Amino acid sequence: MSRSPALVIRNLRVRTVSVPLRLPLETSGGTIGMAPLVLVDLDTEEGVTGCAYLFCYTPLILRPMASLLVELGEVIQGAEAAPRSLEAVLQRRFRLLGNKGLTAMALAGIDMAAWDALAKASDLSLVRLLGGEPGPVKAYNSCGLGLIGPDRAAEEAVQLLEPGFRAIKVRLGYPDLRTDLSVVRAVRAAVGDDIVLMADYNQMLSVPEAIERIQALADEGLYWIEEPTNAEDYAGHARIREKAGVAIQMGENWWGTREMAKCVAAGASDLVMPDAMKIGGVSGWQRAAAIAGAAGLPVSSHLFPELSVHLLAVTPAAHWLEYADWAEPVLETPVRIEDGHAQCPDLPGAGIVWNEEAVERYLVQ
């Protein structure tokens, strides 16, 4: 890893935006039509600014998240922008409260922004700062394809392949198994046998229901099935996995690597897909990659494609990047897709640069 110059934190600037999705996502938990984002700018005395964003899932927590980050900005003002040191200081602050939810998200945002600042100060892309080289990472399109029925799902699936993807993900969890089967078969008929097709139940099934449905889907050519039951039920997922006949994918709801380690130890998943924000930012991802490597588990990403393309490029067991364009409207340089691969940019930092005109348009006061 390259040696980075010392940077001193001057302040933390925080803005909230609500960005309309090009393809609203209808899941068993509700429809996502807007992306509520918190934009984080970590300014340093040396004139370098590190950038990151947090996906808040619901606009209800935009203000609480922004307020928490503003308070934390005062805590770290004057400190060195050294991610591991910052993490240690902030973790101590929340030891009694615990590090999940808003707290974990805020700390991850600071971590990601600090790593971005260090890479920029070193005039290196994040992947090079972490000791790797930029290169293509295979990606699947995870935009849209929610619970919209067989006909619309088939049409949308073809649309999602147009940018050059060779893999897409469909959400399942219809009121009955018959509809799940109809949707998968309609999508497969529309895209052909050469396209990789993943599926996600978004935790909506009981363990017995999951076993029944996944066994029925076992011959439909699905590459993996995500979180068929409650994400915290590792024993339940292990039971499902034993009888599935399809690879089980978990990880997007792990709050830190301790939860990941428990899940892996329980044998709950064939594959892993940490979320850069929930796992602990860049620093947390590095620990997660080590756990996955020791267990021999392929590592995919969840959301945050701009950052994840760098992280996967330095992950030995890198598998798939989940592409979602939810933040693209407020970015100057979105992730570029070529031949089904996300291209890792070789520019200083993680490549997150705000489109200020768009930020102003979608700003939430």
Rank of each mutant, 00 (worst) to 15 (best):
R13D: 15
Y223F: 15
A218N: 13
L331A: 01
I76S: 13
V38A: 03
G296I: 08
A266I: 08
I248K: 05
D233T: 12
P329I: 01
A35S: 15
G131Q: 13
V330Q: 00
S18Y: 00
L161P: 06
L23N: 07
L129M: 14
I195E: 02
G109I: 01
E46A: 09
G267R: 07
A265D: 02
G149P: 03
A276T: 11
A218C: 06
T179L: 14
L42Y: 11
R213P: 09
S18K: 00
Q91G: 02
D176Q: 07
A104V: 03
A235D: 13
A231W: 14
G280H: 06
A294F: 12
A216F: 15
L126N: 10
P298T: 08
P298Q: 13
G296H: 10
C51A: 15
K243A: 11
S283D: 02
R13E: 06
L25M: 02
I240V: 15
L205D: 07
I240N: 06
W115S: 00
V359Q: 00
A288Y: 09
R171I: 05
L86P: 04
E356Q: 05
D219Q: 15
G30S: 14
L86V: 07
G284V: 04
L297W: 10
L60C: 12
E209A: 14
I9D: 10
D151C: 06
H237Q: 15
W254I: 03
D111H: 00
G47A: 04
V70N: 01
M1S: 08
V353T: 13
L102N: 04
Q77H: 11
T103F: 04
R15N: 01
L181V: 07
D219S: 14
Q343N: 09
G30N: 13
P64E: 01
A235F: 12
H310C: 08
E332M: 08
P345N: 04
D43P: 00
